[in-house]
Write a protein that binds this DNA or RNA. Structure first.
Lengths: 189, 189
DNA sequence: GTCCATTAGTTGGAAGTCCTACTATTTTGA
DNA sequence: TCAAAATAGTAGGACTTCCAACTAATGGAC
């Protein structure tokens, strides 16, 4: 990850796209998603075209949004992955959680939690200690500095990203609703 | 990447979520997105709550969908990143494209293209040669084996993922529409 | 007609994700 | 009771993405 804002190759594409490769079939749309969908239909893969377009859209939306988030957090020295861990701890009023719970809540692999906590610990934002009731487990706790950073990062993220979603309120709601159904189908909760 | 299907920690979460940490405020929803949204509102971050929920939803949807795609492609020995390169070449009827164009179309960093093409070349699926009209540029061409794999991978992906989107046709369309507006706001095309 | 800015691509490094395999505990059950 | 199974976390490896810095070639400006 560690994606960063509108990169130079963005401009390159803008300059290039208006004149697509002449080897392509004619009449294709400029929008890359619409182009891909047309190509799918041209190949007779009609039944898959909508699914392909939706998934491709999702991938691209993720890329765009993650880049915005990461570039906003960058000056604070955290990535989104680590920010999520900080916020999980921040909301657990006890200020600490076992690794396992962090992984479960964020739905990431245990080794991803180890990785994130390693870096947070190196930065002095969290501490590890053995769980008093289960010596297999490791309790991760927010340090004062971690708590302070979590708050500062949230303030910035709210102001610069979450409150400027580039979408209407209706679209925002629709997006959450559709994805809620998707997540439910996938057994997300 | 190289995410793989429903992993063991998924079950762990399911077993755990019904009994959330008692330190949490009461009345929180089980759905992690809804939970996060409530927490945002409780903190008085109302103006950011919808944007946060939408972005968090997007991240999770991406994770779910990418995992499905990757686990489907895994038996074929390609990742989604490399599959995208193969299909780009497959659709360019000349069967070859400069690295630059690949990066522009996929909206990824030049080094990501280098990386993907390196691995495709090692696997004998593409070849590199110097562009005849610009010796700075590198033309990437599909080999017969690469073409064959692209077709096989598409068949599998269509059948196992794109034609089974876990969403109604209306939801699929709504998702694409909303994301199209998001991409347009972000200057994607 | 040179010289310099731009462009294409690669290399090396950081960070994230996952997986497999391993250790250390806890729990189960014969 | 005590051995086997399950669980929590970590180490190492594969892969992706990005960035910064570098080389090589093109093309404009003077």
């Amino acid at each position: 990850m560690d994606v960063n804002g509108p990169a130079p190759y963005d401009e390159a594409m803008v300059r290039e796209d208006p004149r697509p490769d002449p080897s392509e079939s004619p009449g294709l749309a400029f929008d890359p998603i619409e182009r891909a969908r047309s190509q799918w239909v041209e190949q007779g893969w009609d039944a898959a075209a909508d699914g392909m377009a939706a998934i491709t859209s999702l991938m691209r939306a993720h890329q765009i949004v993650l880049a915005r988030v990461e570039s906003t957090l960058k000056p604070l020295g955290v990535t989104f992955a680590r920010y999520e861990v900080l916020m999980l701890l921040w909301f657990s009023k006890r200020g600490s959680l076992p690794m396992k719970v962090i992984g479960s809540r964020l739905q990431v692999h245990p080794t991803s939690v180890t990785n994130a906590v390693d870096r947070l610990e190196d930065a002095g934002l969290v501490t590890r200690r053995s769980h008093p009731e289960d010596r297999r487990a490791v309790l991760v706790s927010l340090t004062p500095s971690g708590r302070e950073l979590a708050e500062r990062a949230t303030k910035v993220l709210n102001a610069e990203v979450f409150e400027r979603p580039e979408l209407s309120s209706e679209d925002l709601g629709a997006l959450v609703d559709v994805i809620t159904r998707l997540r439910r189908s996938a057994g997300d909760f």
